[in-house]
Amino acid sequence: MTGPVEVRCTLMRGGTSKGAYFLAGDLPAEPAARDDLLLRIMGSPDPRQIDGLGGAHPLTSKVAVVSASDDPAYDVDYLFLQVVVDRPEVTDRQNCGNILAGVGPFAVERGLVAPGDRETSVRIRMLNTGESAVATFPTPGGRVDHTGTAEIAGVPGTAAAVVIEFPPGTTPLLPTGNVRDTVTGIPVTLVDNGMPTVLIPAAALGVTGYESPAELEADPALADRLRELRLAAGPLMGLGDVTSATVPKLSLLAPARDGGAVATRTFIPVRCHTSIGVLGAASVAAGLRLPGGVAEGIARLPAQGDRVRVEHPTGFLDIDVDIDAGGPGDPGGTPTARRTAVVRTARKIFDGTVFPRPAAAPTPPAHPLGGNDGSAAR
Rank of each mutant, 00 (worst) to 15 (best):
V84H: 09
E311Y: 01
P115Y: 06
D145K: 02
T2E: 15
A254N: 03
P248E: 09
K62H: 07
A32G: 03
D86V: 05
I99F: 04
T182C: 08
M12P: 09
P47L: 01
I164P: 08
G52P: 02
R48M: 07
C272T: 04
D224T: 14
G374T: 04
A159T: 07
L239W: 03
A160T: 12
A286Q: 10
G352I: 08
P187M: 03
F106H: 05
P235E: 08
T158S: 08
D46F: 09
P328F: 03
S44Q: 04
R339Q: 10
P255E: 05
L239M: 09
P105V: 11
R265Q: 05
D373R: 04
G332Y: 04
K18T: 12
A73V: 08
P156G: 12
G43V: 03
P31G: 11
R378E: 12
A360R: 11
T266W: 05
V90N: 03
V183I: 15
R271T: 03
V5P: 00
R357Y: 09
V191T: 01
N372I: 09
V198G: 07
G154F: 04
F355I: 15
A160K: 06
P72T: 07
G97S: 07
T334P: 00
L27G: 12
V321D: 05
G55W: 00
T176L: 11
R34E: 02
I268Q: 04
S121G: 15
D71S: 15
V179W: 00
C272N: 03
V284W: 01
P328G: 02
T120M: 07
E109P: 15
V84I: 11
P269Y: 00
T60V: 06
E165M: 06
L38E: 09
A73R: 14
D75E: 07
M195A: 13
V294T: 06
R378T: 09
S375G: 13
T120C: 10
I268N: 05
F80W: 13
D241N: 14
G292V: 00
E30G: 11
A263L: 12
P313C: 01
V247E: 02
R225E: 12
S251A: 15
F267E: 01
T182Q: 13
D77S: 14
A20F: 10
V278H: 06
R13G: 12
G327H: 03
R265W: 00
G206D: 06
V83F: 08
D86E: 12
A337W: 00
A254R: 06
V242E: 05
K348I: 11
G14I: 14
S244C: 05
I276V: 15
G371S: 08
G333C: 05
L229S: 11
T120I: 04
V122T: 13
S61H: 01
T243Q: 12
G104K: 04
G234M: 10
V262L: 05
L216P: 06
P335I: 02
A341H: 04
V63C: 13
L100V: 08
V103G: 12
R48T: 06
C272W: 00
A160Y: 10
L239G: 10
S69R: 13
S212M: 05
L290G: 04
L59W: 00
G177D: 06
S132R: 13
T91M: 11
V278M: 13
S67L: 05
P168F: 03
L100C: 15
P248Y: 08
T243Y: 10
A285N: 12
L369T: 15
C272V: 13
T363I: 14
T340Y: 00
